[in-house]
Each structure stands twice: as structure tokens, then as C-alpha cells.
Amino acid sequence: MSRLELRHVRKAFGGLDVLGDISLSVGAGEFVSILGPSGAGKSTLFQLLTGAEHGEGEMLFDGMPLDDHGRHFAFMPQRDALMPWRRILDNTTLGLEVQGVKRKAARARVAPLFAEFGLAGFERHFPAQLSGGMRQRAALLRTVVQERDMLLLDEPFGALDALTRAAMQRWLEQMWRHHRWTALLITHDVREAVFLSDRIYVLSARPARVLREIRVPLPRPRDPSAAQQAGAVEAEILDILLNPQPSKGHDHD
């Protein structure tokens, strides 16, 4: 049932424990968030998944150990990482190009998605000509068009202003309902996690451990009518983050 499964994953950098003990799972078509304080090593987890770093513990995908050869993930980094010298169209085909798809075929696959991503008419523009929200949508388009098993989203809206971020969250939720991507989102924005996720793993400060796993009980589509219910979940999570159980003599601020 669960596609991605991590069991007791740990990672230390030069004696500094970054990931204490992480166990989590993501089911097919499920939107899961990892929520934790800044600098808790959330991004390190993605580095382990994409093979950029190696840690201890078990990482399974569809029951098979993850290795560098099995490429299951499409990764969307913090900020958009669009290449300023490539036009938007060529930025979105990047992943396909790396996979060895011919340029023409890659463009043909990407082009029909521009309208859905609100980028129609901007194919020939350079990234610098686009607003922050449009750049993020282009980055997400570049990510999903790779057609990998699972999306890894690393604080994708962290660099946006509050209003744009809210608009992008609504847009992403709506997109997700259509496509049912299996997705793992890293964020430190409680409201964002509650709004987008089916489940949330709340992490502690470094060394990161799973403090609590929370199933978000809100109906989809997520709309403002459930704001009260969402508020209760947000309050619960904030409480966990701000008053963690004292553990192993580690102090929190």
C-alpha cells in the first residue's frame, strides 16, 4: 500500500546528528507533509532520497531498497532553480532532456500543460520576465512532467510573498485533486501543511525525530468553510512544535 517507507533513518554530518531517527511512509496518491522548525534537517532527508547523501537505516520504495539507480523522484528545490538563460519552455523540458527525450518530443509533451499551469503565452519568455508565482508554477511544471513515481517538494513557496503563497497553495491543492500525485512536501508553514496534506509528520528540532503523525481530517476540496476545523488542527500542531516533550536532555527554544 505505502509506496515510500523510511525506517529508522539517521544521518550525521561530521559528528553532528542532523536526523535522529526518522520513520515515515507515503501511500500511493497521498499528499504527505514533513513539518518542522527551520534547520531541523528536513532538506537533508530529501538529499538522502535523491541519492545526494547517504545515511543509515532503511529506505524502501514499493518494498524494494532505494538505490541510486532507481530514480523514483521528481525533485522541486527551494526557490525555483529556473535557469535564467533558458526560455520557460526549455526550462520545463529540462528533466525530459536529461532523461534522453529528444527536444522536439519533450516540447510536444510539455506544451499542452502550459494552459493548466497558467503559463500559456509565456513559453518564449525568460524566467526573469515572470512573477514569483509564475516562476513557481513553471518549476512545478518542470517537476511533474518528468512523470516520476513521486514528487518531492522542498518548501516550494517559501520565497513568495504571503498573498502569492496563499494563491499558490489553493492552486496546488486544486491541481493535486485532479492529478493525485504521490507527494512529499517539506515546509515550516503550519497552515500550508494543514491546507495541503492528507497526513503530516511533525519533526523536532535537530536531531530531527518524528514528534507526532497527524491525519488531517478535513474534507477535500479544501475550502474556507472548514476554516474552524483547520484552525483546531493548526493549533494542535503549533502546540506540539512549541512545547515538545522533553527528550534526552535536549533543550529547545
Partner: peptide
């Protein structure tokens, strides 16, 4: 840095990353 990370996650090798990102 993030462009490099992303390309690596896409499966690009060092030469690919050099040509696609570092040179431009």
C-alpha cells in the same frame, strides 16, 4: 547550488551538469 541538486536528482552526471548548468 539548487540547480545542481535538481539536475543530480534528475539523473544527470557530472558532464551533463557541467554542460547544462556550470558552463552557462
Amino acid at each position: 547550488v539548487e540547480i545542481g541538486q535538481m539536475l543530480r536528482a534528475m539523473g544527470a552526471g557530472r558532464w551533463r551538469i557541467f554542460m547544462l548548468a556550470r558552463l552557462p
